[in-house]
Amino acid sequence: MPAPLPPLSLSLQFARFDDVAEHRAALPRHKVTRWIRHALDGDVLQAEITVRIVDAEEGQTLNRDYRQKDYATNVLTFDYSSAPVVMADLVLCAPVVAREAAELGKPLAEHYAHLLVHGTLHAQGWDHETGEEEAEAMEAEEIAILAGLGLANPYAQP
């Protein structure tokens, strides 16, 4: 019998932007909670995570100010503490996520699920930018988590 999933305190926030309703519809609270909880490692006893969906301007500002990369990216993770209590902010840039989902031919909600799993792994110390081995391990973990959620491999070529 698998271990029970850890409790999650979730704050789900949406900035004001033109097509926010489409993004709200793709991110019902119960699904966001499920996706994040499934991405938490076995040594996590509880998590406090804020998910904020932003426009391109806010996404670019945060990426520039905190990562010194002057463009909007799909997901930014700000991790404050790790296991046994994970505390983090996940910031997802709605226009970038929507564009990527369209380019990949995926439903918006499915792409959000992948990016929330990805960001949650970053909040626990996973890092795909430190080397090829770490990138492959993180990718494999994402694929396994998403499969457990009934979602396809996000890295498979169509």
Rank of each mutant, 00 (worst) to 15 (best):
A21D: 14
A144C: 02
L45Y: 03
E48G: 10
R67T: 02
G150T: 11
G125W: 04
P154D: 02
M1R: 13
E133S: 13
D18P: 00
A25G: 07
L8P: 11
L151V: 09
E139Y: 03
A147W: 01
V91Y: 07
K31E: 15
G148P: 13
M1C: 10
A113R: 07
P4V: 02
A137P: 05
G125P: 10
A137E: 15
E100V: 13
R52G: 06
G150D: 09
A72Y: 11
R99Y: 01
G131V: 01
E139W: 04
L146G: 03
P7A: 12
T50H: 02
V97R: 09
G150F: 06
G148A: 12
A21Q: 12
A94E: 06
E58C: 04
A26C: 04
R29E: 14
P84H: 13
E57V: 12
L146S: 02
Y155L: 03
L5V: 12
H118M: 08
P158D: 02
Q13G: 09
Y112R: 03
Q13S: 08
H38R: 15
L90Q: 12
L10N: 00
V54C: 04
T120L: 09
A25V: 09
L8T: 12
E142C: 10
T77Q: 14
P158A: 01
S82D: 13
A39E: 07
S9F: 13
E132I: 11
L10K: 00
R64D: 12
E57P: 02
I143E: 07
H128Y: 06
